[in-house]
Design a protein around this nucleic acid. Structure first.
Lengths: 339, 339
DNA sequence: GTCGTCTTTGTAATCGATTACATATTTTGT
DNA sequence: ACAAAATATGTAATCGATTACAAAGACGAC
């Protein structure tokens, strides 16, 4: 059983294919009576538009590619939900791939745009190699690329991000207000823009509050649980231990706490620990995690909206290059007043 | 700057478009010399195939839709990774949507197949409404639908799943071997096939081992952290508390443990707790979770492989209706011998 | 009655690849 | 040396929608 085409509908409604097409995509230019006849015929034939045909004719893929560094990261799920929600409202589909996989398979990212598979892309990975970034920047479709959460320093792609500096400042001040004066920071991965953004803000704020600073109180990490565990060991090994630790991600914080608890330390009794992101698990962790909340659904929706605007009106000089979304402090039980 | 087409390549290589097309998709039917000329021309022109055109002509979308109940569930990430990996090897793209969202937007699932957006779909949601299932079953493209992890009882779609019964039996026996004789079960959501599969296997095994059974030792849940917390309260309220609890998911187990620890109980000292799935977080949880491991990457890869086989050769009577993948016991620290 | 305007509909070209069929060329067998 | 078979390439139709342009009809103004 073949699905029916515009031709079939036209035949049944006794009009031309042009009229059927118009009825479907621009109903107000056809008369009331034919509109009814066509609708009737559509129902009778069970007509469904063939997107491949439309895509070819309109030179639009009607889909957007979302690139993650890694599909297995729970941080992204809510962002995807937001993107998908907004796209499907506009009749667009969401393609997903991971940068690693695309790279491994020998494809080039820009191919997705070049071969009409996607009309635009949202990249959630700020860690692309310099040559890939170069290629994206110089591509003719560069204006249909947008970064979310992370971005590329130096490149001027539009982006959606949260207030990383402000969030960090809020976190440090929360700890300060609890009486902590010796505060450590577990960073993200070297070279990551979020890592730098948060680390710089941390250093600035600690300086601003005139707190003691020591190089060994900045502990290298990479956003992962495992790195959090590593960091905990470093903390345990310090002579003069900070009384509070601000981790650059929730996963770091969880790993940190998990490892400490394995070593017999208690959070927040022995040390206050904060994360960043507010992933789903944060509130159910033991202890529930004090953290900086990012509205990931909104990040996704905003990213989709901005990208779609650029796809629909490509040459308009969209001035809003970067949307910076607010963050908020969520106080739970992993932080406490200094005894 | 327009991207170049087959025509352009043909002009540069001084051959017909047919020859270029053949060179690209079936190189061994063209002569060595033209093959070289065409490759050269492709390089010069920077030709990229236009997938919309190919899709229209070949009547293939070259993409597969993956349907999740909920994008924000970390359980699915590794499965997606597996699916994506296999699909991209074969030049296919992965579309993602959530059943909830598709439903809310008024679309019908089958539309994705009908309107040539996808060649097949992998459904990770066994909780579809009966009328939707009915629609899928009677659709002409029903043979390009496959379920993974979950499935629909009664319908005979092909599926990929793990050994739910065997895993449950293994779990119960692990607890039994540790000396536990009073074992509770926290179930998945009512109506879910996995929930029934695991619960039935649990009851059977408990009976087989001649253990005491009580209705209140089967606690209703729904796979979520929150339900795990609820279940913990129920457990706390029991007169005669089971010494071990087998939860139908890791998230349940984590919620269960989290809530207990908030109430001053210790795991595994006061009660042994097991999960099912082995999600990424399980090994970093406090205490690290004893659980039944599903190889989610393999589930994804198998699902993609099976579906692709059906897409490529649609009428072949694929006898392997259900692939059942092995599970394994991972012993960590949330279970211990009965004192 | 004629002209202009507006609305509604049809005709046919088009998007860019694939492929059945025809044709030209080379190879093989006897 | 000639027929048959195999190989290589070109011609042109095709997938199914969209849309520029043309044309036909309705209406009112003068």
């Amino acid at each position: 059983m073949k699905t029916s085409t515009l031709q079939d509908v036209a035949r049944v409604a006794k009009v031309s294919t042009a009229t059927v097409s118009r009825t479907l995509s621009n109903p107000n230019v056809v008369s009331e009576s034919t509109r009814r006849r066509v609708s009737e015929a559509v129902k009778i034939t069970g007509y469904r538009i063939n997107r491949a045909a439309r895509n070819l004719r309109t030179q639009r893929a009607h889909s957007v590619l979302v690139l993650l560094p890694d599909l297995a990261n729970p941080f992204f799920s809510a962002i995807l939900e937001g993107i998908s929600r907004n796209l499907s409202q506009q009749g667009y589909s969401m393609l997903i791939a991971s940068t690693k996989q695309v790279h491994d398979s020998g494809e080039r990212l820009i191919d997705y745009l070049d071969d009409a598979r996607a009309d635009g892309m949202i990249i959630l990975d700020g860690g692309l190699d310099a040559d890939i970034v170069e290629m994206l920047e110089t591509a003719p479709q560069a204006n249909r690329i947008l970064f979310a959460c992370e971005w590329i320093d130096g490149a001027n792609f539009p982006s959606v991000r949260c207030q990383n500096r402000q969030g960090t400042r809020t976190a440090v001040n929360h700890l300060y207000d609890l009486g902590h004066r010796k505060i450590a920071h577990v960073t993200g991965p070297e070279g990551n823009v979020l890592m730098h953004s948060r680390k710089d803000a941390f250093v600035d704020e600690v300086e601003h509050l005139k707190l003691e600073q020591r190089p060994e109180w900045i502990i290298d990490g990479d956003f992962s649980l495992a790195a959090g565990c590593q960091a905990a060991l470093k903390w345990v090994g310090l002579h003069d231990r900070p009384t509070a630790v601000f981790c650059a991600s929730d996963q770091l914080a969880m790993g940190f706490i998990a490892e400490l608890s394995r070593r017999g330390f208690k959070v927040p009794d022995d040390v206050s620990v904060m994360g960043f992101d507010d992933i789903d698990l944060a509130e159910h962790f033991i202890p529930p995690l004090t953290t900086i909340q990012q509205d990931r659904l909104m990040i996704g929706e905003t990213a989709a909206k901005m990208l779609m605007a650029r796809i629909v009106t490509p040459n308009e000089a969209n001035s809003d290059q970067a949307a910076v979304l607010p963050v908020s402090l969520v106080v739970r039980e992993s932080t406490a007043s200094l005894r």
